[in-house]
Design a protein around this nucleic acid. Structure first.
Length: 803
RNA sequence: GCGGGCGUGGCGGAAUUGGCAGACGCGCUAGACUUAGGAUCUAGUGAUUUUAUCGUGGGGGUUCAAGUCCCUUCGCCCGCACCA
């Protein structure tokens, strides 16, 4: 019978849908499994071959869990707000909602043709008012708890998208999305206090099973550092607080530096004799984009503040104060004490401005030639009461001293900044806040949610970077919920990350119109048991959604501190030439073409077989053919199938081993070796020339999570009835996976000389005897002295000889 | 610069705790069949000077035994990047 994948695949997709085979059950007393993949942004390009890599992997896990008797939730939805649809809308004069609906329809078609076991009845769409009602609701809760606030601040501004960006969205000084230039711009912005959760976002990583590299990346991004704030008195009588992680080197602080934006400069204006020069430097620094500022790393610039000095609190010495843009206003206190002997940046600056370099930690080379920055070796010198101590001892000793004298305090800092939550764009959730002259920023009453986006015809941003919503004159005018007076709506919208920060919660009870999700549903389904997604979302989506989840936990809405119990990630699929797939490189593979050519089952198999799941691998059209051949071979085994139900004696061991290996490999996401194991199995069967029905049915059950359609078809023809997708996962018998006769290797001086079949039960002594009985060994060790003999049960015997 | 990862045939990649390097697939070679195909089947396929020797980026070490552990060095990829 010919393998007609088109008919088979359509038939089963229809059948599964009709029977609601993959619908998760709320209120079940079965054990649950919540598997999650990152819901896609429905772009105009359609599905990329990268999407199915993650979706197939989690589909395999979800399908296996279902077969193991779990109540499985494997949902899907659309992260559909965002810039591309809006930009397309502006260019082509179509409403973003129209394009989005079209794109979703296309994505849906493509995902359905791949046979994922998604529970389509729980589909969510972030642009649906019934959905974003709750996104807005969460924002209101954040606002009420003081975690959302408006602030005039310099933000990253993409000159091409005309929109503000979060720090996380600026990559190498350019816009993450479009690559456009990013400048600093002052703008009043909604901010979320993610920094308040910084410590918990680090600490709670201990409770979850994320890949170690994901945890590391999150920690690095949050960037915790322990240090001290130290107060320097100025000769003008003012004070200046600096942040340092190396307070042990305070005796070596020979100057101080403040950032160009530091408010102290204005305050000192009257005392400064070179104020004009400083002013000019500030202006120059403000003109530089973030990119230029980091590009300038090699060459330090700065100006000395003439007319004022700082006093080193431990030496009492007067030291100069500089302004330089190598000090960032956004980190620490925006001011530092410079210890050129033990900090590379300070050293460079000191060399350029001819400032004294005083060694206070010995152990390095000449500090006049290079800064010595090691904190684990070295001894304090020239450091008063610290002299003789190690750096590790000196740090707490200095903190104790500073605290006692009231000169400073211990202080923890984070690199993490508050989240810039405003976007001056149309295609996002409206921020449910009104501004009243009398009452200030007032939250919209919850019963007025959702605050629906006004229908507009023009989506271009306003003149000076205003949101397009600023042109929705009627929509803006409203009354203040507080005093009833005239008020204006907020025109900024939320960033794309808003809708994706909580979407997994909505899946648990997707159609609830009274609550975000019912308490029962949340308590049952949350946390997500296993979340797979891309590494590129580690510092954006993952961090943001953990933050929101913790907030929702704090207000008693969700049952767990962490949203995701386990997080894994997949590697990228590259073009056939080994480069990243892109239109401009002309190496894009379209899933539609692939499915058309070899079918969904072979496509899914190849996606899982092409390489190690967590590594980047190039696509190969030939490799795809290989997987098609495999699927077809499995199909053709029908022609050699016997009617026997169980396993034949000579295949039993291999069958049990195969069940064990495939199951274990799926769990470890070693899909490539799981498939290789099944390939080996059919190679054996083919060699033998026959397969029992029992063996065949077990094989297709193992293969079902990978290639669900074809196996379902075979099950219908030969199986026990019902859907294979809901049939029990095969069991294996541990005792039947072990061989009693095994081949062991005989080595002489570590070199392989022979192989013998022996009983697996043999102890090392018996193994040694068996080895010495080998003709080949006898010959090779004749006349030589046996120094020692190592026998590793079930593996090898190594005879060490001399002479 | 800091953090993470990687380096194995012609290619993608296998190899729990150190224990037969190259599973599986692709490609290639030869043969079979043929309605001549991007089909299928069979056999072979790390290298070489082939009773054997050498082989996991390079060099050194530990060990009876190293892709795996230690030191050193080179190269590539990803993330962060003046965070005091």
């Amino acid at each position: 019978m010919k393998y007609e994948f088109k008919e088979i695949e359509q038939k089963w997709q229809k059948r599964w849908e009709e029977e609601g085979a993959f619908c998760a059950e709320n209120g079940s007393d079965k054990e649950k499994f919540f598997g999650l993949i990152e819901f896609p942004y429905p772009s105009g390009q359609g599905l990329h071959v990268g999407h199915p890599r993650s979706y197939t992997a989690m589909d395999i896990i979800a399908r296996k869990r279902r077969m193991q008797g779990y109540n499985v939730l494997y949902p899907i939805g659309w992260d559909a707000f965002g810039l591309p649809a809006e930009n397309f809308a502006i260019k082509n004069n179509v409403h973003p909602a129209v394009i989005t609906a079209k794109n979703i329809a296309n994505f849906k078609r493509q995902l359905k043709m791949l046979g994922f076991s998604f529970d389509w009845s729980r589909e969510v769409n972030t642009t649906d008012p019934e959905y974003y009602k709750w996104t807005q609701w969460i924002f209101l809760q954040l606002f009420k708890k003081g975690l959302a606030y408006k602030k005039e601040m310099p933000i990253n501004w993409c000159t091409s998208c005309n929109v503000g960006l979060a720090n996380e969205e600026v990559v190498n000084g350019v816009c993450e999305r479009c690559g456009g230039e990013v400048i600093q711009k002052n703008q009043s912005q909604w901010m979320l206090k993610i920094t308040e959760y910084a410590q918990r976002l680090i600490d709670d990583l201990d409770e979850v099973e994320f890949l170690e590299k994901i945890k590391t990346q999150q920690k690095n991004w949050i960037g915790r550092s322990e240090g001290a704030e130290v107060t320097f008195k100025l000769t003008t009588g003012d004070e200046m607080v600096v942040y340092t992680t190396r307070c042990d080197t305070l005796f070596g602080a020979t100057y101080t530096v403040i950032s160009p934006e530091h408010p102290l400069i204005a305050k000192l204006q009257d005392s400064l004799t070179n104020y004009d020069e400083i002013k000019a430097y500030q202006l120059e620094a403000s003109k530089k984009s973030e990119f230029e500022r980091t590009e300038m790393v090699k060459e330090k610039t700065g100006v000395k503040l003439e007319g004022v000095n700082a006093i080193n609190p431990v030496t009492g010495e007067e030291i100069p104060v500089f302004v330089s843009d190598y000090v960032l206003v956004t980190y620490g206190t925006g001011a530092i004490m410079a210890v050129p002997a033990h900090d590379t940046r300070d050293w460079e600056f000191a060399k350029k401005f001819n400032l004294p370099i005083v060694e206070v930690v010995s152990g390095g080379e000449d500090v006049q030639k290079e800064a010595y920055t090691d904190v684990y070796k070295g001894t304090m010198v020239n450091s008063g009461f610290l002299t003789g101590k190690s750096v590790q001892e000196a740090i707490p000793a200095m903190i104790a001293y500073l605290e006692e004298k009231g000169l400073g305090t211990k202080k923890v800092n984070y690199k993490l900044r508050d989240w810039v939550f405003s976007r001056q764009r149309y295609w996002g959730e409206p921020i449910p806040i009104v501004y009243c002259e009398k009452c200030g920023y007032v939250p919209l009453p919850e019963d007025q949610l959702p605050l629906v986006l006004p229908d507009m015809e023009e989506f271009k941003p306003g003149e000076n970077g205003e949101s397009p919503l600023a042109n929705a004159t009627e929509w803006i005018q409203t009354t203040c919920p507080c005093c009833g007076g005239p008020a204006k709506r907020e025109t900024d919208t939320m960033p794309q990350w808003a809708g994706s920060s909580w979407y997994f919660l909505r899946y648990t009870d997707a159609h609830n119109s009274d609550e975000l999700s019912s308490k029962e549903a949340l308590n049952y389904w949350i946390p997500v048991d296993w979340y797979n997604g891309g590494m590129e979302h580690t510092t954006l989506h993952l961090l943001y959604s953990r933050f929101w989840h913790k907030f929702l936990y704090d207000i008693g809405l969700v049952p767990t501190k962490e949203p995701y119990q386990k997080r894994t990630s997949h590697g990228m699929i590259l073009g056939e030439n080994g480069e990243k797939m892109s239109k401009s490189r002309g190496n894009v593979v379209n899933p539609d073409d692939v499915v058309n050519e070899v079918g969904a089952d072979a496509f899914r198999t190849y996606e899982m077989f092409l390489g190690a799941f967590d590594q980047s691998t190039p696509w190969s059209q030939q490799g795809l053919r290989g997987c098609y051949r495999f699927i077809e071979k499995v199909w053709n085994l029908q022609s050699i199938m016997t009617e026997e139900d169980g396993y034949s004696a000579d295949m039993e061991k291999l069958m049990h081993k195969t069940i064990q290996k495939v199951g274990e490999d799926f769990e470890r996401m070693k899909f490539n070796t799981a498939i290789a194991t099944m390939m080996s199995f059919i190679n054996e069967v083919t060699k033998k020339g026959s397969i029992t029905k029992g063996e065949y049915m077990t094989l297709i059950t193992l293969l079902n999570p990978v290639a669900p359609h074809m196996t379902e078809e075979l099950w219908e023809m030969y199986g026990d009835g019902g859907l294979l997708s809901l049939h029990a996962w095969p069991e294996f018998d541990e005792s039947k996976t072990v061989d009693d006769q095994i081949e062991v290797v005989l080595q002489i001086n570590g070199k392989i000389r022979d192989k013998i079949m022996i009983s697996a039960e043999l102890n090392p002594q018996e193994m040694q005897e068996a080895a010495l009985a080998s003709e080949k060994v006898k010959e090779l060790i004749a006349g030589k002295e046996i120094v020692k003999c190592i026998a590793v049960p079930k593996k090898l015997i190594n005879i060490v000889v001399k002479g």
